[in-house]
Design a protein around this nucleic acid. Structure first.
Length: 304
RNA sequence: CGCGAGGUAGAGCAGUUCGGAAGCUCGCCGGGCUCAUAACCCGGAGGUCACAGGUUCAAAUCCUGUCCUCGCAA
């Protein structure tokens, strides 16, 4: 069975690597276009391109799929597999050959672009992965199989994505084998229970200390890779990579810095928020203790 | 040539404007105090001030070039 793989970010990379490790016959990789990235606006390929090249797989980066329908018709493949490709596939493409998708949530919950972040933001303790048929609608195709995954308190976007991708791979391999031997079954989703999650805006990552501490910590977890939760210390924009709930005390004023010694504590609405890893503009990502050693708190109130 | 910040002790930073003895906080080592401590006190080790060249009686500091790190934007 010849597989045409669609995927762009790390989640897709893990799945693709796994398919290759399991010796599936991947005949090509379709991913998003190169984009200008980093300082100096140099064009940069998605990381998955390197993986594809290492295995001598042809890479296709089409601006619009619908303008390349004939190209796809000319390709020799039996099944398209998508894993966070990043673009919506049009009907005339899906009509060519069957297509299945790996989605990191327990569908019909969290249809859309940001299921992993959403689970973390909402403080869920479980999520999952679904293998489904790709249809025109957003993540609404029939389900082949799905599996729950625990979310640990210490999980963030990076670690959870890793877990979900690996479980997704396992389910995908299983499903592909069943499709090959004709034993694959699928059941429709219950659309009435569907929920949708939107794209993340940069401003979503701003930490508002008048929120509950758990929400703040969940933001840090959900946005750990990008765009990274942040707040302003005077004029300095501080990115927070790791944080936790320090206590449920509410003795300080909201937004007040309660300690800059050993612990970096800020009063939130219903508890104390502790920053464990952060970064100021121009600096590296530091443990809170290192950050506190040299940072000059000018206008902020110090306590303890 | 998109905009900007930075490289000084193991870590994080000040010092650079205006050249004139290498500093701070933390960590580390040793000692003291304490029932005890992420506490406090005393002492100590640890630096080619990113690299190269230039100016100068004298350069972390001024000039030129190179390398590296990071924030924004996309």
């Amino acid at each position: 069975m010849k597989i045409l793989f669609f995927g762009t970010p790390r989640f897709a990379e893990i799945i693709l690597q796994g398919l290759l490790d399991h010796h599936f016959d991947v005949v090509g990789v379709v991913c998003q276009n190169d984009k200008p990235a980093g300082r100096g606006k140099k064009m940069k390929s998605p990381h998955i391109v390197e993986l594809a090249h290492n295995h001598n797989l042809p890479v296709y980066q089409f601006e619009k799929i619908r303008e390349h329908i004939d190209d796809f018709k000319a390709m020799d493949y039996d099944l398209a597999v998508t894993a966070s490709y990043g673009k919506i596939l049009p009907k005339n493409f899906l009509d060519i050959k069957p297509c299945i998708n790996v989605h990191p949530s327990m569908l019909p919950k969290y249809r859309g672009a940001t299921p992993i972040q959403s689970a973390l933001l909402n403080g869920d303790t479980t999520t999952g992965v679904t293998i489904m048929k790709t249809e025109v609608g957003m993540d609404d195709g029939d389900i082949f199989v799905q599996k729950q995954v625990q979310i640990l308190p210490e999980d963030d976007y990076v670690s959870l994505l890793d877990k979900l991708a690996n479980v997704g791979l396992e389910l995908l391999v299983d499903t592909l084998k069943k499709i090959e031997n004709g034993t694959a079954k699928r059941t429709p989703q219950d659309d009435s229970k569907a929920t949708f999650v939107k794209l993340i805006q940069k401003e979503d990552a701003l930490l508002d200390f008048s929120c509950n501490v758990e929400n703040l910590v969940n933001k840090v977890r959900a946005f750990a890779e990008s765009p990274v939760a942040f707040f302003f210390l005077g004029d300095d924009r501080i990115k927070v990579y790791k944080a936790r709930v320090f206590s449920k005390e509410t003795n300080g004023k909201i937004g007040e810095i309660l300690s800059t010694k050993k612990h970096f504590l800020i009063q939130a609405k219903d508890g104390v928020f502790e920053i464990l890893k952060c970064q100021s503009a121009g600096g590296k990502v530091l443990d809170a203790s290192a950050f506190l050693n040299g940072y000059h708190f000018k206008t902020m109130v110090e306590g303890v």
